[in-house]
Design a protein around this nucleic acid. Structure first.
Lengths: 217, 217
DNA sequence: ACCTGAACACCGTTCAAGT
DNA sequence: ACCTGAACACCGTTCAAGT
């Protein structure tokens, strides 16, 4: 048998180099700056060459999602179910807070990186260990996940990464510059909103949610 | 004094007709189909004419946000603080569930339609009436709002309106078609996830969250 | 005063052709 | 086998010119 000869042009691009280039674009200028054409420019190739390695922008994003999921590493976790739940969500929250654009991809099309499955399994198991039925535990996981998504998205969009709006019509105002005359309760909270935006209350608010979920049994 | 004469061409477009046309595009083909050029086509005008009435796409979206906010109408509400909180969030949830794209606009740039302020005031007041300090009440409102955002976004994106992904790389799978061999707890929940997606659990899950928040005091 | 046309600087994607 | 060029059907936005 003859040894297999390599034929044709040697590849210059690979899905790994493509994904890496995409990640530096995202890290530099945000997810909205990632385009197939700009990616190609960064790789020094034609836009169309990228399509040999990735079927489209969709697939590229999911590839990036999978790479992000692989970086979530499970450290040592508390044995106590309640504390374990917090620890698990904290891992995901911290991982996603670093790459908040992932949330947008993750949320589409009920897709799941298998790299995420151990997390769901562990969470649901911890809820069961805390006394919920499997069904209730699954439901509890979904609620907490939705809360996490909401927190990450609001945090991302109102943060410095958030898309700034250039034109705001006269009808709309910033929450900070509101006429609180007719709103007695909100008037007492001037200065509270900017402060609330600074502190990250994910963990303590998650505690309230989880305790509510465990209490309903 | 001479009576003011109208001068120049009579306007054919107005921000009202523009907003209305934009809304029918969104209702027909979704928010991602809304472009200045398509809007102009629908109005029978040149793309550039729209810019006489609206400073850009940003401003158009915020205009639509304000129009949506105006449609949220406060009906009669329970006097009991806890029930009142549920009622208020239900109004917002129902209103936004009909126009889920609003969430994306709302979440950007901590903007607030004054038409939304009565809602925030009422919510915070109800939390205070339920025994929280104004600060705690403000924080509680923020958590519940984030939960609502998460619920609406996940619901929108995984619903039939959700952007379908054409290409999925081999590494990724649908949650429904998972090898549950190595995940004993998840294996027990086959069939649970699709069912969970069908039922809208917003209200009952909000109850768990609110009770958790009230319990922490 | 209001609207148009042409132009600039972009998109994602396909397909025939080149090396 | 891999990559390029040209092309198609789009974007948001600006600015000089027309009615």
């Amino acid at each position: 048998m003859m040894s297999r000869q390599k034929t044709g042009r040697p590849p210059r691009l690979s899905s790994d180099t493509i994904a890496a280039a995409a990640e530096t674009i995202i890290d530099t200028d945000g997810i909205e700056a990632l385009s197939m054409r700009r990616l190609a420019r960064a790789l020094g190739s034609s836009p169309t060459a990228v399509y040999r390695h990735v079927r489209g922008k969709d697939e590229l994003l999911l590839l990036l999602l999978d790479r992000a999921a692989r970086e979530l590493r499970k450290g040592p976790l508390p044995r106590d179910p309640r504390k374990r739940i917090f620890g698990l969500f904290q891992i995901v929250y911290d991982g996603l807070a670093m790459r908040p654009w992932v949330v947008g991809v993750l949320v589409k099309g009920d897709l799941i990186a298998p790299s995420f499955l151990w997390f769901i399994e562990e969470i649901v198991a911890a809820f069961v260990a805390a006394g919920l039925s499997p069904q209730r535990a699954g439901a509890a996981y979904l609620v907490a996940w939705r809360y996490t998504v909401g927190h990450l998205i609001v945090r991302y969009e109102t943060g410095q990464n958030g898309a700034k709006l250039k034109h705001t019509p006269g009808v709309l105002r910033q929450l900070s510059s509101i006429d609180t005359q007719q709103f007695p309760i909100l008037a007492e909270l001037t200065g509270f909103w900017p402060a609330a935006r600074k502190r990250d209350t994910y963990r303590e608010d998650l505690a309230a949610l989880i305790d509510g979920l465990l209490a309903r049994g």
